[in-house]
């Protein structure tokens, strides 16, 4: 077979799948412009008032702020811990590296609800409850696997002797890591950080068990608003989230070409 182009049926099916997957996104975006006070497709009229409503609503703004602080904090901590752990695991500095890796990755496999309940019980037992720190720790637990996974994948892709070369040339261990290993694994780490950020931003099942009234995050607020009756402001805030995600992914790809590590 010299012709590498897919046949017409394959192309058609692929397009249909892509459209099907994007329908929810399209629906939400369209609904956010509707003048009606309920969600409807196609939108009736065209207005930006729901966006205005979201951006002037202190509940939404507070939730967005909470979510951002939490996602940035959790990702930063996960990054430091995850990269350090991956490095040690990759270099087989510890006995039982395989088991430790599985342990760190386990939040990906265990259902989030279970993690949520478990953490709630644990924090109650140790006397930590309903605070930002609790939420931050929980988000570190659920985001660290993404960092570890991408860091391990990146490390296995580089020639370890480059770091030895740096050390022979007069760099101490940390300098060698900073000047040689880190730049080489950076694209993978950016990918991991994005996953971590997004995971923290969208998490409901773990957060809902642990967040106190003052720690309401954006997905929790959307979740509860939907329960109480949907108006297009929910669609508007979702649209804002979608736009922000697309922009972040676009620039991250431009800067690092991280898709190779996803």
């Amino acid at each position: 077979m010299n012709d590498q182009r897919p046949t017409l049926p394959v192309t058609t099916i692929a397009l249909l799948v892509v459209v099907f997957l994007q329908i929810p996104v399209i629906v939400v975006v369209l609904a956010s412009f509707s003048e009606t006070s309920y969600l409807t497709i196609p939108p009736q009229g065209l207005t930006l008032k729901w966006f205005e409503a979201v951006l002037t609503d202190s509940a939404y703004l507070g939730a967005i702020r909470n979510s951002l602080v939490l996602a940035i904090g959790a990702t930063t901590i996960s990054m430091v811990l995850g990269v350090a752990a991956s490095y040690a695991l990759f270099r087989k500095m510890l006995p039982g590296s395989e088991a430790l890796t599985s342990l760190l990755m386990s939040p990906l496999i265990i259902p989030s609800v279970v993690i949520g309940v478990a953490l709630l019980q644990y924090f109650t037992l140790v006397g930590l409850r309903g605070g930002f720190v609790v939420l931050l720790l929980a988000h570190v637990v659920i985001t660290v696997p993404y960092i570890v996974r991408s860091a391990l994948a990146s490390l296995s892709g580089i020639d370890l002797s480059v770091e030895e070369a740096a050390r022979c040339l007069g760099a101490d261990g940390f300098t060698a890591f900073r000047l040689v290993t880190l730049p080489l694994i950076k694209p993978g780490l950016v990918a991991g950080a994005l996953f971590s950020f997004v995971t923290s931003m969208e998490n409901v099942p773990v957060t809902i068990f642990l967040a106190g009234p003052r720690q309401t995050t954006l997905p929790i607020l959307i979740f509860t608003s939907v329960e109480m009756g949907v108006d297009p402001s929910v669609a508007a805030v979702s649209t804002l989230l979608i736009i922000a995600t697309v922009l972040v992914l676009f620039f991250a790809e431009r800067w690092t070409g991280f898709h190779r590590f996803v």
Partner: peptide
């Protein structure tokens, strides 16, 4: 030290 794999810094 000169390595078998050269170990040049690719970046």
């Amino acid at each position: 030290l000169v390595f078998q794999s050269y170990a040049l810094f690719p970046h």
